[in-house]
Design a protein around this nucleic acid. Structure first.
Lengths: 121, 121
DNA sequence: TGCATATCTGCAAGAATATGCAGATAAGCG
DNA sequence: CGCTTATCTGCATATTCTTGCAGATATGCA
């Protein structure tokens, strides 16, 4: 049984890394390909330093990888499928007590799943 | 875009609830059906009070539900599919830096996925 | 070289979690 | 009722995260 304990610990690690709204949005931003730090910061409306910190955490856990080009650092998901897996987790958000309507979940699922159109909502 | 922010926050909540080795093991224990607090505590080798705390958190987030029968409190997963989804996350554990071998992951996946045989490892 | 842009790192303060333990409830039994 | 078993709740402490901000670095360009 220690095997399962170890694996559970590793799984928990991954969950912890993902368990932050900013990081989830970042991963979904990266689902369609690499982006540089500044673009992420602007798109998500977050201070650059914060984005950098999140990226460094995700890098440490090998969720993302960096590619440098001049003064730009481009990041991409090592396993892009993780973005889909996270969205699958929405199945367990619906029906919870809090204030998120079913429709906005469906919408978010579409927006994230569809290979990124323009529209904002 | 605020829609996506809200949804990301909710998703992060769920991830946070799951992001604990004990709770992951509890969820996997419950995949095959309800169990009472004491059984969980013994199976997972955890103090009863701790198990109770975890359950209370998961109850608050509507991951589990309680059924009382005399002095026993039986808990079950509201959406049992969550157990599978969590195991799917193992795809993103492999290839990380830490000390968990590929084989123990495969094994854990089998042990959790297979509708619970006897064997411990 | 000097300056602006892009990104990272370090640190301090505050917030949120985890954990162990003691004591409260509640049901079952003699 | 008094005792035991099963489970929960409250509290204090330790640990871990989050966040903002102030410098470092590094690259590109004049």
């Amino acid at each position: 049984m220690p095997g399962r304990q170890l694996v559970a610990r590793e799984l928990a690690e991954i969950f912890k890394v993902i368990a932050h709204p900013d990081r989830i949005r970042m991963i979904e931003e990266l689902r369609t390909g690499e982006k540089d730090v500044n673009t992420l910061a602007e798109t998500l409306d977050l201070p650059g330093a914060r984005v950098s910190q999140h990226l460094s955490l995700m890098r440490a856990h090998r969720l993302v990888e960096e590619r440098r080009d001049g003064r730009h650092h481009f990041y991409h998901l090592i396993q892009p499928e993780i973005a889909d897996w996270i969205v699958d987790g929405l199945d367990f958000v619906e029906g919870r007590l809090s204030g998120v309507s079913k429709s906005s979940i469906t919408q978010a699922r579409r927006l994230w799943t569809a290979s990124a159109k323009a529209a904002n909502s």
